[in-house]
Design a protein around this nucleic acid. Structure first.
Length: 894
DNA sequence: TTTTTCACG
DNA sequence: ACGTACGTGAAAAAT
């Protein structure tokens, strides 16, 4: 059976353009699309060895569809200047490479692709379509597979009928129904208002087609939804039609012209040179180096290309990225015990996976273990396992001599604590590895971890398949970590910290439920009073919690002047309301109501729901933030009120979980500005810290040109705002808004600041330049964050990238230092009656037996201050009290 | 699910 | 002319 590859030229070129950095020839011609497209093309050639191939392009004339619907693609953006000429360059390169292209005035690439697919299927060929456009999924059939690009173009997801069904529960023909219902903003296909992907899939799951959904609109639940479906029925039918690819483009095409031909070397070399596509040339030559010297290729190939005609591609040096199937062995109880003993004796490295009861791992139980050892896998059903096997397995897990690769060590350790077991010897935590490699990724489940290195959707039908896949990608993670210089950070900081965090979570923090309830009762009374007052002043009652309804009352009924708009209507946030305070007495009441209702819903009710046996156990997320900070969820204990007194009172309910122990809080003073001083080596800023001055007062003194004794409160307030802004990537707008001063004045302060702190100015400029060159920034511990925004065609995005470049090394280094400090503190406190309970970015909360407070405070302070020496001193302030509200300064003597 | 708002460092 | 300070998580409404 012959194989044809169909590439969507426009879609892939667009993807390549936005995915890759701006590359140019020495004359300045943009070439990033050429690089991206040709690299992909050569890879497909080597891996797929097509018999036929074709690249389809749109022709820029009016298309047939515009006649159907005037707005179609109406809001599509103008092609960027750097992209437009590359289409012609690309066609030139393709011609030199003997790759056939098709285009047809009045039709889109989509329609050409559909037409070629139909003809190829008639000949019983195998069809592979490569595009970034999900519309193409409608072409899937037993003979046709669609490959969608994923983040950039270097990786694709394979969709056949099964994969499509697994992901969307749709048949290929239903893709157009999906578009008909949900529309497509990028093509200005309207669909039905209020129907997004979720709703559309639900409807199609029940009614199969657009027509059938419309016919049964009276059965559909949801008043608004039903109404919209009726109102926009015609629009849905039209949208479906627009999404349908045309299979009958009136174009003579002889499929034989699409056959693969080896290019003329000289012609190809000339054009590669013309556009300085060195990398493409290198790949070409590498793939076509004589196969004499590649002796390392010995993979268990299961591809079905026996009847491949002679193609130009020889065996390439790529390693096979497909997963090997490792056998799953069955063991009885005796064999398990024996096997576990053997592995321990041989110190055999293993990969572990597990299935647990659903929900928060804090309370979950283990259902099954999956273990991979030396290309074999084993499954252990935990509930029905023999007690002797369980004991043996527990010893195996806690044997630190046995190296373990795991998907998520913290969650595993958490669950194990429910089983009275522990975990030692974790030598690779794949989630943490993946996080360090890309701290902005969001998914860390096994499928996603494997997918990083295995194209397509790995589909694990058993735990043993999952664990074998994890084991097989582990080495790839190690290589990448090495390449990026992240190995030490992983093994010396993140992995050990994960166990510290798991223990903190398990210890929990004490919360007095009764006190919290009575606090809530007080709030309820006050909230009811405010609510009545507001309705009286408004002359009507409404849902005060609805920004929409509140906006209506304030700006329509009462006629207050609108200040700011959101994309859906009037803005009613605190900043807006502050400005309106003078206009109407209702505004102040609304502000008070907002503040109290926040306390009531998020804190009183939210926390009450989380109390278990007098304690709250948060989850610290270690793979969430882009900068390396931790985050805290279910509940978030890193945003307990403190700034306003009414909220701060809430802290009274937090106490040491251990009876009669007290809380100790230790927080870094100005850690981010100290890091800025360290990085910038600025003389004034460094001196300020070396002398132990109040840094905001010193800044005010410099900016306003007065001695420190003459700095007023207002000057200090403004200088403090400048210092805050610096860390975020100072802007005039931000400073003026925060301090409530005109832009002009903000600009003046910034200029003055940079006059006096020229080292800071130089550093911030340099960090941006370097970030632009390298596309990434690093922290002091080498933590990495890539900043693709710096190369984004949109200027706002680029400026956002610049602020990230200024902020991340600072915020991230602060996070690094705190993590090191936590490891030091926990280790140093081992002999004491004390536990670390919480981390709030620059603060640690510890519980301690009162008689050991002196010693413990001293240790915590010293460990934190000396966690990582900077060119300026780090200082830590300790406070102590019976709860998190009544904290009094605590001085340790040296 | 998305939007708005607001709590923290 | 536009849309801006950096990093988070949760609740409620509207869809």
């Amino acid at each position: 059976m012959s194989k044809i590859l169909i590439l969507d030229g426009n879609s892939l070129a667009n993807r390549a353009f936005y995915a890759l950095p701006m590359l140019t020839t020495k004359e300045g011609k943009p070439t990033n699309v050429l690089h991206g497209f040709m690299t992909m093309l050569l890879r497909l050639l080597a891996e797929q060895k097509p018999d036929y191939w074709i690249v389809a392009f749109d022709k820029t004339k009016a298309t047939v569809r515009i006649e159907q619907f005037a707005a179609y693609k109406g809001n599509r953006k103008e092609t960027p200047d750097a992209l437009r000429p590359q289409f012609d360059y690309l066609k030139e390169v393709l011609a030199a490479f003997a790759v056939p292209i098709i285009e047809c005035a009045g039709y889109e690439a989509d329609d050409l692709i559909a037409t070629v697919t139909t003809k190829a299927e008639e000949r019983d060929w195998n069809v592979q379509i490569y595009t970034g456009d999900r519309d193409a999924l409608q072409l899937i059939s037993p003979k046709t597979t669609v490959y969608l690009t994923r983040k950039g173009i270097s990786e694709v997801d394979e969709y056949n009928e099964e994969a499509l069904y697994a992901k969307y529960q749709l048949r290929p023909a239903q893709i157009i129904d999906l578009k008909g219902l949900m529309g497509d903003a990028s093509d200005n296909i309207p669909g039905i208002p209020g129907v997004g992907e979720k709703t559309a899939l639900k409807l199609l799951g029940e009614y199969e087609t657009v027509e059938n959904v419309l016919a049964h609109s009276d059965e559909i639940k949801g008043k608004k939804l039903q109404e919209n479906i009726r109102t926009y029925a015609d629009q849905a039918r039209l949208s479906k039609k627009l999404a349908t690819m045309l299979h009958e483009v009136p174009l003579e095409m002889d499929l034989e012209k699409f056959s693969y031909r080896r290019p003329d070397e000289a012609e190809f070399a000339t054009v590669l040179d013309k556009y300085t596509l060195k990398n493409v040339a290198r790949i070409w030559h590498q793939n076509h180096a004589e196969n004499l010297d590649d002796s390392k290729e010995a993979s268990t190939e299961n591809a079905d290309n026996q009847d491949n005609p002679e193609t130009a591609s020889s065996e390439n040096t790529n390693t096979n990225t497909l997963l090997d199937g490792w056998p799953a062995k069955e063991l009885n109880s005796e064999e398990w015990i024996q096997q576990l003993d053997n592995w321990r004796a041989a110190k055999q490295p293993v990969t572990l996976s597990y299935k647990i009861t659903p929900g928060n791992p804090h309370w979950s139980r283990v259902l099954e273990w999956g273990i991979a050892v030396q290309k074999n896998t084993y499954s252990l059903l935990w509930a029905e396992a023999d007690p002797a096997v369980k004991r043996s397995f527990a010893s195996f897990l806690e044997d630190s001599e046995v190296s373990k690769t795991v998907g998520d060590g913290k969650a595993l350790y958490s669950v194990l604590q429910n089983e009275e077991m522990t975990l030692r010897g974790v030598s690779l935590d794949l989630s943490l590895a993946a996080y360090l490699i890309n701290p902005t990724r969001t998914k860390f489940d096994a499928v996603e971890l494997v997918r990083e290195y295995v194209p397509g959707y790995p589909d694990f039908s058993s735990l043993t398949e999952e664990v074998s896949a994890l084991a097989q990608v582990a080495d790839r993670y190690k290589e990448t970590l090495e390449e990026l210089g992240l190995t030490a950070l992983l093994h010396q900081v993140e992995e050990p910290l994960s166990f510290v965090l798991a223990r903190m979570e398990r210890t929990g923090i004490g919360v007095d439920a009764e006190q919290l309830k009575s606090f809530g009762e007080g709030l309820t009374t006050e909230l009811q009073r405010l609510e009545q007052e507001i309705y009286l002043l408004a002359g009507e009652s409404f849902n005060l919690n609805s920004p929409h309804q509140l906006g209506h009352v304030l700006f329509e009924t009462l006629g207050l002047p609108p200040v700011k708009k959101t994309k859906t209507g009037y803005s009613t946030d605190a900043e807006t309301l502050e400005e309106l305070k003078m206009s109407h007495p209702i505004v102040e009441n609304v502000l008070d109501y907002r503040q109290l209702s926040k306390l009531m819903s998020t804190y009183v009710n939210g926390l009450l729901a989380q109390i278990k046996e007098g304690k709250i156990h948060t989850t610290f997320q270690q793979t969430v933030t882009a900068t390396g900070r931790l985050s805290s969820t279910e509940p978030n204990l890193q945003n307990i009120p403190i700034r306003l007194e009414q909220g701060r009172l809430l802290r009274k309910v937090f106490q040491a979980p251990h009876k009669d122990w007290v809380l100790l809080s230790a927080d870094y003073s100005q850690i981010e500005l100290r890091i800025l001083a360290h990085y910038s080596k600025d003389e004034v800023l460094s001196e300020s810290f070396a002398l132990g001055q109040d840094v905001h007062t010193r800044t005010a003194s410099e900016v306003f040109g007065v001695p420190m004794e003459e700095v007023t409160k207002d000057m200090r307030r403004k200088a403090k705002a400048v210092n805050f802004g610096l860390v975020y990537g100072l802007t005039e707008f931000g400073l003026s808004r925060d301090v409530g001063i005109p832009r002009k004045e903000a600009k003046y302060y910034i200029e003055k600041y940079f006059d006096r702190y020229s080292g800071v100015k130089r550093y911030l400029a340099e960090v941006v330049i370097q970030a632009k060159e390298e596309g990434e920034v690093r922290t002091l511990l080498n933590r990495l964050r890539r900043i693709p925004e710096l190369r984004h065609p949109n200027r706002n995005q680029r400026q956002f990238g610049e602020r990230i470049a200024m902020n991340t090394p600072i915020q991230g280094t602060a996070a690094d230092i705190m993590k090191l400090a936590m490891l030091g503190v926990v280790q140093a406190l081992e002999p004491f009656q004390a536990d670390v309970l919480l981390q709030v970015h620059d603060e640690l909360v510890v519980q301690v037996a009162p008689e050991e407070l002196d010693q413990v405070a001293k240790i915590v302070k010293e460990e934190m201050e000396n966690a990582f020496p900077l060119s300026v001193p780090l200082t830590v302030e300790c406070k102590t009290g019976r709860n998190w509200y009544e904290m009094e300064p605590f001085f340790t003597d040296k």
